[in-house]
Simulated assay, not measured.
Amino acid sequence: MRLPALNGLRTFDAVARHLSMKHAAAELCVTPSAVSQQLRGLEEELGVSLFRRANRALYLSDAGQSLLPAIRNAFRLMTEATDRVRNGADSGMLTVSVTPFFAETWLVPRLGDFQARHPAIDLRVMATTALANLAAGEADVAIRHGLGSYRDMISDLLIAPMVVPVASPDLVIRLGSPGEAVDLLDWPKVHGADRGGWPLWFRHHGLIATARGASFDDVGLLRTAILSGQGAGLLPAALAEPDIRDGRLVGLADPVLLDGLAYYLVTPSAADLRPSVMAFRHWLLEQVQGLEEA
């Protein structure tokens, strides 16, 4: 299917931001009539009205509201891509997408060492639960928690944390303390984003289970769901230990390592040749090796 003309999309974006033909025209350095003509052509091509007019004011229609986020994201990606090309293949800026929990508890406290070793590399850390599209240039590298299988990407295992099943005291009082793993099969459960934790935990204990229940893409939200009694959940042992010690959570079994469930450094294959990516990858793996040797 043929895409609409770029000029029409740029005009739509400008009018949507200003909700004014006059102000959009001033931004685009054209006349208001030219803006109106471009907008009319885009609406005719799409077969919908992108704006509605009432009392001499301009508002986005339902179709316009649906289209706008994608158009703005597309222009942002194009701007970032052209900036990278204009500034060279390796400008010294390195964007790292990382989960908020890992960023706060592990990565950020160590970044001073990286900056001291590589002062020419400016890091941009995006702490987000969203999966950055590395192929589209949304980030240069990513650190993700999961099973390490990312299509057309290189994954380096960083840290496989011990995990422990926990629940709120109220839920334990209501359901009773589990004596062994099989007793947890019928408990309500909450999950991480990939829903892989509980099936792996039960498999580790020789059992088969499905991943039913709510899932959360941030470990902080998962902890909150467990604390509020929504179900049993798996948390990194280091995160759960203070809550268990202070009685806010109850440990349901001993901490274990689950095969494959870990934090991974993810890079696009082509990006491995970039000096800044290679420097960050080498430094990160060195930090992990230091932990293993300590």
Rank of each mutant, 00 (worst) to 15 (best):
A193S: 12
A5L: 10
R124Y: 07
D13V: 14
L284C: 15
L291A: 02
Q287A: 06
A70T: 13
H18L: 04
S61E: 00
G290L: 14
S215F: 09
V219G: 03
L200S: 08
A14K: 04
P199T: 00
G206K: 07
A74T: 12
T129W: 06
D140V: 13
R40I: 04
V172M: 10
A26T: 14
L123Y: 10
A25E: 02
E180A: 09
V35R: 02
W198E: 10
A81K: 01
P69G: 02
R223W: 00
L252E: 06
A181M: 03
R110T: 07
Q115R: 15
S91K: 01
V277P: 07
F202R: 14
S36G: 13
G41L: 12
V30I: 14
D218P: 00
R17T: 06
D254H: 05
L147P: 05
L147V: 14
D254F: 03
A63Y: 06
R174L: 13
L42F: 12
R52F: 06
G197R: 03
V15H: 08
A209F: 01
E180C: 11
L50G: 14
W201V: 04
G176E: 02
H191N: 04
L131D: 14
M126N: 07
D246T: 10
E104P: 00
A209G: 03
F12R: 00
L261A: 06
L273T: 15
G148V: 12
V163F: 07
V141F: 15
D156N: 11
Y150T: 13
H205G: 10
D217H: 06
T99S: 13
L185P: 06
A70E: 07
G260D: 09
A253L: 01
R2V: 10
D13R: 01
L265Q: 13
P100G: 11
Y59H: 14
S49M: 07
P169F: 14
R248H: 07
V85D: 01
P178F: 05
L46S: 14
A34G: 00
D62C: 13
I173Q: 03
T267I: 05
A103N: 15
W106G: 09
V96H: 11
F114M: 14
V250A: 05
G220Y: 03
G137Q: 05
E138H: 11
R110I: 03
R84C: 01
Y263H: 08
Q38W: 14
F202P: 13
M126F: 07
R10E: 12
M153F: 13
H23L: 08
R76N: 01
S61P: 01
M162F: 13
H204L: 05
R223G: 00
Y263E: 13
R281C: 05
E45T: 04
P100C: 03
S177F: 13
G176W: 08
A116S: 12
A181T: 11
Q230I: 00
G220P: 00
V256Y: 08
G8K: 03
A238C: 05
D170P: 00
V85T: 05
W283V: 07
A89G: 08
L94Q: 12
H145C: 15
A225I: 01
V190S: 11
G137M: 06
L3M: 09
E45Q: 14
P236L: 06
V182N: 01
